[in-house]
């Protein structure tokens, strides 16, 4: 089994493992970000270039460094390979460049975007972006399109990761949407506005790293960090029925697939589970889900909010005055 060293961490991995997956096996900070690679979708990856890393030693056999940064999601580990991610300032500068390219035509409409809070581009912007843009030209825009009754395509936000096209290719039959045009004006489009009618089409929403594909049944209902994720399941003939409910009070605002640390879907779910089962009674609740993804959402605000409410209630029950923020139990550091 080949051995690879990434930012000083050495791991032995099965033959054929990519650098990115080797890094995920090590885990933690050193894992390169990925906007287009998706382990569950064949042939995904290679397009966005955010996962680039520096290969400072090719292999034991041929120790020459690779001349250019490589896409870690599509480059296979060789025995003795040494990779630099966070330990290479030049690489981080190059990645910042990629992030800038992804952002120059992005509308930055996070305040009105449903994806805000769980958006991979937002995370990437926080980590590698700059406060001010150097791009001073009009950003490209597209009309919003309804693809079917449940999905809204807001192409202006798209970063062309091709994940949704691969979902259509690999999960559904009779693909009706794809990438049209060329270059800067490429866009995801359905064939002359054909509606996507397929039991698994909703998974496109989950794989979209940005807010380009959103759930029409959830649009503008709530900021995601004000909803509480709860794992639940039901007997479903079409899919595993294992989902995550996003609740606000007694209401189920949204149903998604469960996602792992890297924001990837664990089990694909069907459109019935996603769009039609919005009552608590439809589901067998397993318990709250802790989001440990590297993202805004993982601040788990809803927990803090709940504890804040409890703290206020406790204070009131004691008959005390309402404490000011930062005082006693209400100090955000204490909850």
């Amino acid at each position: 089994m080949p051995k690879v060293t990434i930012d000083g961490h050495t791991i032995e991995v099965p033959e054929g493992t990519t650098i990115l997956n080797a890094a995920r096996m090590i885990g933690g900070e050193i894992v390169p970000p990925a906007m287009c690679y998706y382990s569950k979708l064949k042939t995904s990856g290679g397009y966005c270039r955010t996962c680039i890393v520096e290969v400072s030693k090719g292999s034991e056999k041929d120790p020459r460094p690779m001349p250019k940064p490589v896409a870690s999601c599509r480059t296979t580990v060789m025995d003795g390979m040494e990779v630099k991610n966070l330990t290479s300032p030049a690489l981080l500068e190059a990645r910042a460049g990629v992030v800038e390219f992804l952002l120059i035509n992005h509308p930055l409409d996070c305040p009105i975007c449903d994806q805000a809070g769980e958006c991979h581009l937002q995370d990437l912007g926080y980590e590698h972006g700059k406060a001010k843009t150097r791009y001073e030209f009009p950003r490209r825009t597209f009309e919003k399109i309804d693809i079917g009754n449940y999905i809204k395509l807001h192409m202006t936000r798209c970063i062309l990761c091709y994940r949704c096209v691969k979902v259509a290719e690999q999960l559904t039959d009779g693909r009706v949407h794809g990438v049209i045009n060329r270059g800067e004006v490429s866009e995801i489009s359905t064939y002359i506005q054909n509606a996507i009618k397929n039991d698994f089409s909703g998974n496109m929403i989950d794989v979209c790293p940005v807010g380009a594909l959103t759930d029409k049944t959830f649009r503008f209902k709530s900021r995601v960090w004000f909803t509480k994720p709860v794992d639940a399941h039901r007997d479903c003939k079409k899919c595993s029925g294992k989902v995550r409910l996003w609740e606000k009070g007694e209401e189920v605002l949204r149903v998604t697939a469960r996602k792992d640390t890297y924001g990837e879907v664990v089990d694909w779910i069907c459109n019935d589970c996603r769009f039609e089962k919005k009552k608590i009674g439809d589901w067998i609740i397993e318990g709250p889900a802790k989001i440990d993804r590297h993202s805004v959402i993982s601040a788990n605000h809803y927990e803090s909010l709940n504890q804040l409410k409890l703290a206020v209630a406790r204070q009131r029950n004691k008959g005390g005055k309402k404490p000011a923020l930062g005082e006693g139990a209400l100090n955000p550091n204490n909850i």
Partner: peptide
């Protein structure tokens, strides 16, 4: 083939 495949290709080439 699917119509979208023809559309994807036709829109790529100038």
């Amino acid at each position: 083939i699917q119509a979208i495949e023809a559309f994807e290709v036709a829109s790529f080439y100038s």
